[in-house]
């Protein structure tokens, strides 16, 4: 399947949400483990390094998904439905990936 072909395929509709799901699981798992094991937590009641790391990765995931949305939207297409829809879904997933990591900027990780 060519690159252009991918956005024609309905699987591309699921790209964004699948990335979001994986990211969400990773976010929850890493945070929980970090709190249990004390990785980068600094013990305090202020945002810790782990939060910044997670927020950074969240931003990265969101940017990748936005790039995907952009490519999908611009992909040449005889039938625009699936690429366009994929683009919108990816963009929504980008937002959904970014926001959950943001509370970490003002909160302590493990209380």
């Amino acid at each position: 399947m060519t690159r252009r072909g991918f956005w024609q395929h309905p699987a591309s509709l699921l790209l964004g949400p699948v990335v979001w799901s994986i990211w969400f699981v990773v976010l929850y798992a890493v945070l929980s483990l970090a709190c249990l094991q004390g990785w980068l937590v600094n013990g305090g009641d202020h945002p810790a390094a782990i939060n910044l790391v997670l927020a950074g990765v969240g931003l990265l995931v969101a940017m990748v998904l936005m790039a995907a949305a952009w490519t999908a939207w611009r992909s040449p297409a005889e039938t625009g439905f699936i690429p366009r829809t994929s683009a919108m879904v990816s963009a929504c997933s980008a937002v959904a990936s970014l926001l959950p990591a943001m509370p970490g900027l003002i909160m302590a990780p493990c209380l």
Partner: peptide, 16 residues
């Protein structure tokens, strides 16, 4: 809602 809610929630916690 979150901008108001999260800090308020933070204050309810058993902070030192």
């Amino acid at each position: 809602i979150l901008a108001f809610g999260i800090p308020l929630g933070q204050r309810m916690l058993p902070l030192p």
